Computed example of a mutant assay.
Amino acid sequence: MLQLIEPMARLHCSWLEAHHEWGAGLHEDGFGLEGSDEVESPEGFAAWVARLADASGAKSADAERGCVYRWIVEGSRVEGGIALRYGLTDHVRQFGHIGYGIRPSSRGRGVATWALGRMLEEARALGLDRVLLVCAVDNLASAGTIERNGGVLESVRDTPHGPARRYWIAL
């Protein structure tokens, strides 16, 4: 059974398996991974998990900025990550309120659709009335996930990473 949980250091090995499936780079949206994060060692991983917990901030939509990170797990297997960014920062304007990534071997099972639905509940609880989601124009799987959760296409815009679809979901 799928669950959304707070990041935890005890899932280091499972998270690394998912991370290695993606290959090199920082392309797992939803995990909050930055270039300076060292996640291979248990100590570095624990420090990263602690940083994610600190990033949660005030957990209020009135806060200037903050982010809630959740891992998508099934049993003890990390299937992906999802992040709810709140506050209307430049980062949110460019990448959206919610970002997610599903490990390649778990795609096509509805995991992202399920996780996005649960994260929309967290957004409502924070008092948000709508959320922006952004995906690459050629990422049809992500576009479908967003549309299944009520996303309405606002526009397609050029970004530094290529053209992107911009969707709004009313809460």
Rank of each mutant, 00 (worst) to 15 (best):
L11H: 02
I5W: 03
N139L: 13
S106D: 01
L116N: 03
C13K: 15
S142C: 13
P104W: 03
E121M: 08
R51P: 04
I169L: 12
W15I: 00
S56K: 15
Y100V: 06
S155Y: 01
V92E: 06
D138V: 14
I98L: 02
C13E: 14
H91Q: 14
G99P: 00
G101C: 15
R107N: 01
E28C: 14
R65H: 15
L2V: 00
W15Q: 08
A53N: 06
R148I: 06
L120G: 01
R51S: 07
E79N: 03
M8I: 04
P104H: 02
G23W: 10
L132D: 00
R93N: 05
G127C: 02
G87K: 06
L116V: 01
V156G: 05
A50G: 03
E43M: 03
G30N: 04
R166N: 03
Y86H: 12
G23I: 08
V131L: 10
L153M: 09
G25H: 09
S56V: 05
R157E: 15
D29S: 15
G101K: 15
R85K: 12
A123H: 12
W168A: 12
L52K: 15
S105G: 08
S36T: 09
G108V: 02
T89A: 11
R10Q: 11
T113K: 09
H12V: 01
G96S: 10
G81D: 02
V131E: 04
G32R: 13
E64H: 14
D54Q: 13
R118K: 12
G80T: 05
R51T: 03
G32L: 11
E79T: 01
R51W: 05
N149M: 02
H161D: 14
G80L: 07
A50N: 04
C13L: 14
R10W: 07
D29Q: 13
R130M: 12
Q94P: 06
R103H: 02
Y86T: 05
E21P: 09
H97W: 07
N139E: 13
L2T: 00
A58T: 11
A115G: 02
S41V: 05
I102W: 06
G81R: 04
L26D: 08
R77T: 13
S60K: 10
W71K: 07
T113D: 10
H161F: 07
F45Y: 13
E17T: 11
A115M: 01
W71D: 04
D90K: 08
L140E: 04
G150A: 07
R165I: 06
A18T: 03
I82C: 10
Q94C: 15
P7Y: 01
E21M: 12
F31G: 01
W114P: 10
E154A: 05
A170F: 10
E38Y: 01
A164Q: 12
H27W: 08
A53V: 02
E79S: 03
W114Q: 12
S41T: 15
V39R: 08
G35F: 08
A170L: 10
Y69E: 11
W15M: 05
G75Y: 09
H12C: 04
L33D: 00
G66H: 11
G101L: 13
A24L: 09
R118W: 02
L16P: 08
